[in-house]
């Protein structure tokens, strides 16, 4: 299970872009986003809340979007923001959940000029 919890993906849309273009940066992560309200069907016990509570999008270490998220966001969440491509760089997305689990994912930004 822990290996699965670390799965995440960054997608840049469209695939071909130039410096100065505004691209979509999609961040998808495999995460249960449990609300703490659901009961386990077998044991009848309440599944404790486990959700991502903060996400930071960084470009070369400089944050450009920060998010506070609650359990209202769906299971295996998807977040999409825009980014104006300033040139070559590296996008890093760091996320933390309410249990203190920290993870990050990176992707290179390669504009085709």
């Amino acid at each position: 299970m822990p290996a699965e919890a670390r799965k995440s993906m960054i997608k840049i849309k469209p695939k071909k872009y130039k410096t100065g273009d505004i691209v979509k940066v999609d961040f998808i992560v495999i995460h249960p986003m449990d609300t703490g309200l659901k009961k386990d069907k077998k044991t009848g016990e309440v599944i404790p809340a486990k959700y991502i509570d903060s996400i930071t999008f960084k470009l070369d270490g400089k944050p450009f979007t920060t998010m506070k998220v609650w359990e209202t966001v769906s299971t295996n969440p998807y977040f999409s923001v825009n980014l104006k491509v300033p040139g070559k760089g590296k996008i890093t997305v760091e996320y933390t959940d309410n249990t203190g689990e920290k993870n990050s994912k990176s992707k290179k930004l390669k504009p085709k000029d």
Partner: peptide, 21 residues
């Protein structure tokens, strides 16, 4: 509350998309 998204001029556009319950 579902999400609070803090943007900067680096984003280039005021856009956000997600999926909620």
């Amino acid at each position: 509350r579902a999400a609070d998204v803090m943007l900067t001029p680096m984003n280039g556009k005021g856009y956000f998309a997600t999926r909620i319950k």
